[in-house]
Design a protein around this nucleic acid. Sequence first.
DNA 1: GATGAATGAGGGTTCATTCAT
DNA 2: TATGAATGAACCCTCATTCAT
Lengths: 203, 203, 203, 203
Amino acid sequence: MRKSEDTKNRIIQSAIKLISQNGYAATTTAQIAKDAGISEATLFKYFKDKENLLHKVVSVALTQILGSVVLSPLKENIEKNKDLKVSEFLRSIINERLEMLDKNIDLFKIVLIEIQYNDSLKNEVIKNMVPKTCEAKGLIERILIRKGNISKEMAKGISRMMIGTLLTFLFQKYILGIETTSDEIKEEIENVLNVIKKSIGEE
Amino acid sequence: MRKSEDTKNRIIQSAIKLISQNGYAATTTAQIAKDAGISEATLFKYFKDKENLLHKVVSVALTQILGSVVLSPLKENIEKNKDLKVSEFLRSIINERLEMLDKNIDLFKIVLIEIQYNDSLKNEVIKNMVPKTCEAKGLIERILIRKGNISKEMAKGISRMMIGTLLTFLFQKYILGIETTSDEIKEEIENVLNVIKKSIGEE
Amino acid sequence: MRKSEDTKNRIIQSAIKLISQNGYAATTTAQIAKDAGISEATLFKYFKDKENLLHKVVSVALTQILGSVVLSPLKENIEKNKDLKVSEFLRSIINERLEMLDKNIDLFKIVLIEIQYNDSLKNEVIKNMVPKTCEAKGLIERILIRKGNISKEMAKGISRMMIGTLLTFLFQKYILGIETTSDEIKEEIENVLNVIKKSIGEE
Amino acid sequence: MRKSEDTKNRIIQSAIKLISQNGYAATTTAQIAKDAGISEATLFKYFKDKENLLHKVVSVALTQILGSVVLSPLKENIEKNKDLKVSEFLRSIINERLEMLDKNIDLFKIVLIEIQYNDSLKNEVIKNMVPKTCEAKGLIERILIRKGNISKEMAKGISRMMIGTLLTFLFQKYILGIETTSDEIKEEIENVLNVIKKSIGEE
DNA sequence: GATGAATGAGGGTTCATTCAT
DNA sequence: TATGAATGAACCCTCATTCAT
């Protein structure tokens, strides 16, 4: 049981590694088995077929991204920093989110790419990802509003900008693969925060 | 000659369609040939191998995205609207860009996904895409600055927000495939523009 | 293990048979697989590609021709007959060599023909074949010299004639495929031996 | 007509060149057409199919080898040198034959290799080559006998040795591709002639 | 007479999957 | 449970050959 569970996990980890590198269609079960240190026959003892393994991989990715890794630290962070100035609150969120992206980029890539080609996967992902993300977004907006002087519409605009900023970095660094120094990143974050600060009259 | 050029184009169009639907690795040359109404043998008369066809597809995509489709209308739009109020100027740009995204989403998807797995493709894309995008970004920033009362840093923050907003829509609609009514989209744009307007004291 | 080795050998034997019949380029992996009673997929589990199989075939051929089959019996024969008269010594060698040719003609043909089109094969063959052949040639020459009254040059001429005689039969029977009765062969051998006998003043 | 005949010859020459380099099965009609500077379609206007072209190539090769190139110079040479000493007569023949081999090795290779795989080709070749070769062999033998003191059997042995010597060089230089200096060749020829000289008591 | 364009048939090769052990 | 051995189906690609122009 222990051993069995362990083998299964090794297969999944190998699949994550290889699929994120080469894509699902270009990753062979032979590669995965070899990387996991087992035979192909064994792989098919654990997973009915390749598609089944992909679903498991995505499911694991979703769990990790949404459940333990993504939202908990975000909520923690939000809670911990909710008494800061708005700009500092937002900065801490962005930085924490960037770190999280960095740690989970393989999983993100797999999920984002493979749902393009697989509707059942897409539905599964949407069903899990959207409400959780909206929840987090709402949480941030409520805090912004509570901090005073910020209308609901402004809060929505600001939270959307935060998402946009994160996506821009995701795009730049992980999709296009452009090397960016952490100084450059900091500067760009400050530029965005500047606009927001001005808009809410902070300082 | 006429005929030959036509066949070649049909192959490329079929490839674009199928690769954007299923990904490069999962698209077979047989599918492409069938869709183009020719034999596989003919396909390989026009393209040395499958990889070669992918490069041609990406090259066409880049040309179309960057050259005629992406930048020209953007510059035209910028030129035409540079005398509007800042918020109206930005709104017109976003709307025009959203339309452009909609028209070229297949090409975008192919390029963005396939460069994950193909370094020579990635280099080609980066070399072409980055400078042109920076150019457009710079153009917008200069106009913002010239319109008065906006610092260079603010302009940078704002242009980055514009990109972030576009990427958010790209992500939401085309990656996650979430249906969004145009009213919802408009509302969200207004929320973002609102923040920007506030930040530059417009009105 | 047993089974696996067996399958591999069956593939090689089928390859030898078919390549010697039709040549490497005209022999398909499908034919080989069918002849070996396995699927093509299995063939490619045992040999990386068709070229690899050819190399194995040639390697087997070389081993068989040079190692166990060619030189050992020759040396044995030389040893056994070194006390005969020169003409009888040479006759026994020629006859033994002709038998050997007959048994291994398929392997010879493959090696001799395929090295025309494949440099790496040619190098491999040369490296193995030339020294061993020179060794055998040298052995014969030393015995001839030791038998008295034969100069080094004469010995070289005679050994060369032996090779020439063998090649003539190879050419006649196996290249041109001309049927020759064993009486005709014997007669021709005697004619050549006659010349040699005269030249060394035997009898 | 002139032009047409010319094109046909260019095709044949290209075929000879390429088939001798790569073998019939591995030579494509596309390669031949390209080398001949024409389109593949044109090639098939001149030759019903690829096999047909091979037959024409072999036929040309045979004509050239046997008719004009091979036997005429040999007969000429025999006639011219029939009054020399036996050893000198044989030396001149060998040298002339070696030169001829060198000039026509491409044709020889094609013929010798392709008849292994094609019975109709083999029959054609045998029918033409054997009688002519026997004729030349007989001619030489008659001259040897006429020169005195050489029995019919000795003459046969000697002529066979000549063929063997030539085949040895053919084998060494053109099949195995072993580089040999002309000095080495001369020495080996002398060794063989030495034996013959001794056998007929020359000098 | 020459060729650009096209292709059916087949070649080598890979892949996910099965099954006896 | 784990795997060595095997494979049908499909993949990318090539080839000799045809035909309208």
